[in-house]
Write a protein that binds this DNA or RNA. Structure first.
Lengths: 205, 205
DNA sequence: TTCATTACTGAACACTGTGTTCGATATCAG
DNA sequence: CTGATATCGAACACAGTGTTCAGTAATGAA
């Protein structure tokens, strides 16, 4: 409702939201999303029941509103908002999606990642990540596409395919206790997933 | 007949299980798995509450035990148990996974498919399908692998990748109201996913 | 047909978790 | 200081779960 003026939020509100969000995150790692009750959350955060419902509709609402942060903390901001460029230096192989960053990040915070996307992950989270990644990839493809050329497969599908493959590999890797290095996983990703993409967009790296 | 095998189940038992399973399936299509209560199921099946709990632990138990049928009805028996062979005739392009059958099947029963794997699907079902498909694919890859050759990527990963890609595409297709024909989707699948696979196993189709 | 066995019935119950309400209390900004 | 706003927490109504048990019905074997 209020664009900018609304910066006069009571300090208590910010603190409350942060406590709730933090409580949820730590509980997710500990016992998994499904097993968490609202009572657990407010106990952990030391807040009253009605306070919780004054801020969020339910457990899922809390999860969803904290999603931005979660996605960043899962995938890494570098990847999420990689409008930057870089890749300069060597032109040799353009990168559409740098799997290595994601796998490295997952290794650092593997408890969180495992709770979120491994095993019985939280499907809302997975879908969101998939959507973000997919969008990011689609933009990258558009950039790489030669002038006026039409790929043999709609870019939306290709983007979706790449994002999905990324998550499939990540999930497998986490479920199997990270048996290869992030660098190796990136190699595998590039080797399995990319040839088809290069062919469809008519670029030979 | 089976002398010893404990197949002497009361006809009522079979009928009961079938009613419950059928009730669950129709309810899934109607309102989605999450929204279903045990009460809904027994109302639809016209059975008593205690009868339900005499057979199954809970809603998920019912789902899991009926899974075999479900997976078959989703993927199509031809694909699930494709130990057959065929593929004779033309040797031209060996098929590891025939996506066209799956997409065709999904089109015929798209309400069920959508409820199961589209949008907010049932993750237990998706995981199960992924596992079955992945196993099937791994066997096919082993068959195609030239004598004594070691692929550059572990076959388990490749199989997982292919099954995951299949499901990613299928989900996208269902979520977007099947904008292309099953045949076209199969083409896309072969074009995007397979080149990397051929490269890693050292086969050029 | 008879009859012991096995399966289904359905109401009652205890239990867990949800989401709301409201008066009392604490903390805010000005 | 003061009025506005946020939190507290107990109490409540509600929905769904899973169990129990005495009564009833169907089954299959003799």
């Amino acid at each position: 409702m209020k664009p900018e003026t609304n910066e006069k939020v009571d300090r208590r509100v910010q603190r409350t939201r942060q406590l709730l969000s933090g409580a949820l995150m730590s509980l997710i790692v500990e016992k998994g999303y499904d097993a968490i009750t609202v009572q657990n959350i407010i106990d952990r955060a030391n807040l009253g029941r009605s306070t919780f419902y004054a801020h969020y509709q339910d457990k899922e609402d809390l999860l969803l509103r904290g999603m931005e942060n979660i996605v960043h903390s899962l995938i890494g901001d570098e990847n999420v908002a990689r409008r930057d460029e870089g890749d300069e230096g060597d032109e040799e192989t353009p990168r559409i999606l740098s799997a290595v960053l994601i796998f490295q990040h997952a290794k650092e915070q593997h408890s969180l990642h495992k709770a979120m996307v491994g095993g019985r992950g939280i499907d809302v989270i997975i879908k969101t990540i998939q959507t973000h990644l997919s969008q990011h990839v689609e933009e990258r493809i558009q950039e790489l596409l030669p002038e006026g050329q039409t790929p043999s497969v709609p870019t939306q599908i290709t983007a979706n395919y790449l994002a999905g493959t990324m998550l499939t590999l990540l999930t497998w890797w986490l479920d199997n206790n990270m048996p290869y290095s992030p660098e190796r996983m990136d190699e595998i990703f590039q080797e399995l997933a990319m040839p088809g993409v290069w062919a469809t967009i008519g670029v030979t790296p």
